[in-house]
Simulated scan of single mutants.
Amino acid sequence: PHPAPAPTLDPRLSLALGRPRHGDSLTRRAGRSLRKLASSAAQDVAEEARVAEQLQQPVTTGRVVAVTSIRGGVGKTSVSALLARAFIHYRHDQVLALDADAALGTLPVRLGAGEVRWSCTELARLLTPSMTLSDVTEYLVPVDGGWLLPASQGRVGAPLDLRTYRKVTLALRRYFAVTVADCESLPGEVARTAMDTAHARVVVAPLTAEGVGGTRIVLEWLARLPHPALTTTVVALTAASPDMPLDVKAAATHLKEAGVPVVSLPYDRHLAGGGPIRTELLGRATRRAATRLAAEVLERAVRAR
């Protein structure tokens, strides 16, 4: 039987969100426009072209990017959505956003999906080697030129088991050049497995002493895995407010000592709203950081075996 569609967000909450805010304040946008008039944009254009080239490089087999963090509420799903959007925007092949956090996954909301129907667990039971891309996409949610596979129907569901995660990611690699898996927080079993088996990894670290310290421990664990997991890992450093007590440069330096690149995602008023992410409303610094993060991740995923 076909499951009935379920809304990703209660209509009352949609109304409560009101009009989404721009990531940058009006004052900041006006100031940037004046500075832009007074300076050359050649350097910015060159950097954007370099990043676009990185993001458009071909992949021989489907690449899986796993995103996790040491705890919830630090922007893990926002980072997953930003990565998926960047890959969808720049690439000309198929991109999948996979919600692998069945307990409280909110990736469908962040990607702007109005409703969901089939879940990861349900699709795992239906997948066969003879299925074509069009067969598979019948069970997925279209999002801005890419595809989404929810973990559940917006309810607290049973934890995603390892067998299901492995079956789905392995099977769907045939159809999708890049899969972004928004995993549960560590030390969850699926998160640990995803970090161990993915082609590239993103660890989302909150800009707090506890968050940076805990993330450094995760990086040391990755360094001890039997294959070179650390060389395909990138840290996304996230700020929960415009005035974080921890110095960004000091935090990034501490994490880089483990041998990984660190991309800082600044506080963004639009992301902080918690609703559907609209790329045009993101702050300029956020858009650039998200694109750079996606390029760093793909560069490592392509090099992975």
Rank of each mutant, 00 (worst) to 15 (best):
V143R: 07
A240K: 13
A84H: 10
R174A: 07
S14T: 00
R19M: 09
R50L: 04
E53T: 15
V59H: 13
S14M: 09
W118F: 14
A290P: 11
G188T: 04
T215R: 07
A66Q: 10
V136W: 05
T169S: 07
R201I: 00
T291V: 11
V136R: 03
P159H: 06
G18A: 06
A181L: 05
P5Y: 08
A250S: 14
A181T: 09
D196R: 14
L293F: 11
Q54L: 06
P261T: 13
G157K: 04
L140S: 03
R288Y: 07
A66C: 15
E115K: 08
Q56N: 14
Q153W: 12
L237M: 06
R288I: 03
R303E: 03
W221N: 13
I70K: 04
R117F: 01
E189A: 14
A6W: 08
A103L: 12
K256Y: 04
E280N: 13
V212M: 11
R63L: 04
E220F: 00
V136Q: 03
L237R: 01
A194W: 11
S33H: 04
R110P: 02
A6C: 10
L83T: 07
R287W: 09
G105P: 05
R35L: 08
T164W: 11
I70N: 10
L123K: 15
D99K: 01
E47H: 08
V263A: 01
A239Q: 14
P206T: 04
A200F: 07
A158V: 05
A194S: 08
T197P: 01
R71T: 15
P261G: 09
W147H: 10
R284P: 01
T197D: 10
T208Q: 02
Y165P: 01
R174E: 07
E138K: 13
P1A: 11
D268Q: 11
E296S: 10
L55D: 09
D99Q: 05
V212H: 08
P187F: 07
T197M: 08
H199L: 00
T164A: 01
P7E: 10
T231H: 12
L255W: 07
I88F: 05
P159M: 00
T61M: 00
A52R: 11
V67F: 07
D161E: 15
E210N: 09
T291H: 10
R201Y: 08
L162T: 05
Q57V: 09
D247I: 00
D24M: 04
A258S: 14
P129H: 11
P142L: 09
D135N: 14
A113D: 02
T27E: 12
